[in-house]
């Protein structure tokens, strides 16, 4: 039963936070070490974010989080910076796959009720978010079965090594 606890970080803009904002091309093309890249996450929209974030913290955003470039450095750098889970109203396609591929869980739900600085508790398997101070509970949409398999296998590459290929026999996904 995975319960994640962390402090919420929100950004301006709230919608369409693209992967250039998550990790700028200025860094991602020349820095190969993901821990060093993590020192620059979100720099273009929140220059102090990398110094403020603590291990286990949670990003909350609006629509279309992770749109734009396919750079896998984006989810990797967020994870390396300490982000434990991202909750948004929707995610862009490439970022969505890549995050689960590298072991960073994502949840979708309405997010207007969560503020920066809130302490929240996320139950990944139940798909529930609880705000510490008020006890407000919000349900999230279920993590698709394929993504659950990848996550529990430790990411895409581990999944392939474990099963000697793909083992995603599932019923129709939602």
């Amino acid at each position: 039963m995975t319960i994640l606890r962390g402090r919420v970080h929100r950004f301006d803009p709230n919608d369409n936070i693209n992967t250039d904002y998550i990790i700028s091309g200025r860094y991602k093309f020349k820095i190969d070490d993901i821990r060093k890249l993590a020192e620059h996450v979100m720099e273009d929209i929140d220059p102090d974010f990398a110094s403020r974030i603590e291990k286990g913290d949670i990003i909350v955003a609006g629509r279309n989080f992770g749109c734009g470039s396919s750079r896998e450095q984006a989810p990797r750098a967020l994870k390396a910076a300490g982000v434990s889970v991202i909750i948004a109203e929707s995610f862009a396609r490439i970022f969505y796959r890549s995050a689960f591929n590298i072991g960073l869980p994502l949840l979708t739900c309405e997010t207007g009720w969560v503020r920066s600085g809130d302490l929240i508790e996320v139950d990944l398997s139940k798909g529930e978010i609880r705000r510490g101070s008020t006890g407000t509970v919000m349900s999230t949409s279920r993590i698709p079965q394929v993504m659950q398999i990848l996550l529990s296998d430790g990411g895409l590459t581990s999944h392939i090594m474990k099963h000697n290929g793909f083992s995603l026999e599932t019923d129709k996904m939602e």
Partner: peptide, 20 residues
Amino acid sequence: TGLGSADVAAAAYTGKLWFK
């Protein structure tokens, strides 16, 4: 379609990939 590096690695290694 564009994908992350892990998906491309998986396709290069197995010749296949999962799609919705």
